[in-house]
Design a protein around this nucleic acid. Sequence first.
DNA 1: ACCTGAACACCGTTCAAGT
DNA 2: ACCTGAACACCGTTCAAGT
Lengths: 199, 199
Amino acid sequence: MSRTRGRPVQGNELTRADIITAALELMHESGEVGLTMRALSARLGVSPMALYRHVEDKAGLIRALSDHVYAAVLQDVPHQANAALMIRTMLSRYHDAVCKHPQLTLAIFANPQAFAGVTAQLTERLAKCLQQIAANPLLWRDVLVDHVHGSALALVSSQGDQAHAQAMRLQYQQALELLLESIVRGTVSDPKTLEGRAP
Amino acid sequence: MSRTRGRPVQGNELTRADIITAALELMHESGEVGLTMRALSARLGVSPMALYRHVEDKAGLIRALSDHVYAAVLQDVPHQANAALMIRTMLSRYHDAVCKHPQLTLAIFANPQAFAGVTAQLTERLAKCLQQIAANPLLWRDVLVDHVHGSALALVSSQGDQAHAQAMRLQYQQALELLLESIVRGTVSDPKTLEGRAP
DNA sequence: ACCTGAACACCGTTCAAGT
DNA sequence: ACCTGAACACCGTTCAAGT
């Protein structure tokens, strides 16, 4: 009988990938609070200190998790295309990633050192796209990104209710369409220069 | 020379109010992570266990903090008035409270047991107001609430930068106006019944 | 190179005891 | 009634040691 989780083959070396998958499982089961170095090492059948060979820190672990989870968000987004379409795909992917691991959002913001570069890149590209279709691109960018983060928090607080989570995903998609409509329909009411909340 | 923080008079009894103010100070200085029962008790010049006379738990402490911080949000909001105005005041107050203690948002969502009733009441009243002016009230409610929560997270990640924080507050107000414009201007594109994410 | 064990400075919380 | 002290089961992380 082989083990279905933890290190795939007993006696093999511990892998960064093993750590990441085990950590995500652990976070699903017991939340951000449950993700501890000690519990993670126990699940992998290894001493706590073995983790520090593959990950710098607990913050480093969370950074690794977000890099892994958000990897696909910006991949192969064409550079010269319909701006609304690009916004839709980037935000849908980001929202999908966030919904699969809502607790990770909490962990990232609770651990400022764990902040991954993906969010920064995402907001930058979003702003560029919005400049083509919106009167107030930076305002709308924050509205859109905050909506993703806010729905992650809502997802965390409705822990485990799968039907509810599914309903919320649908609702997000509809709200996104509503917002995109409003953006393209909108006109400037106050054209003075606005600063974003970037890096 | 009297102490300027901690218990107001030495020898006096420890008060729930003392605990709350000291806890908020502590959270400002060292974040959600820094708010520990032991550090809090040390600041108050008292044994850790003395806190448990006035607060059930650490979750109970955070619940007390949010009750205190959000107390003014729904106070004296008239029941029959301009709907857009009511939305503006409720959200502005909620955003103000959240901005004064952004780390508290993180603490509340990280501690599900600490969830206070104010948010539930707020979303309910928001939905009622939105029914009067919006085609998709529940969708817009989530967009508005998520924007508040999302900007709290953004505020946490830009730790301590006061000028930046001020700019973000301004930006929030402008985004809120933009959203209210969009709401009143909007028409239904898909009139099928939508469910909210409320309890 | 990769992992272990013991140790340190922390947590939240229980429980018995002091005044 | 209100607070203290010692103790328990946890944390993340350092450091020396094993193979």
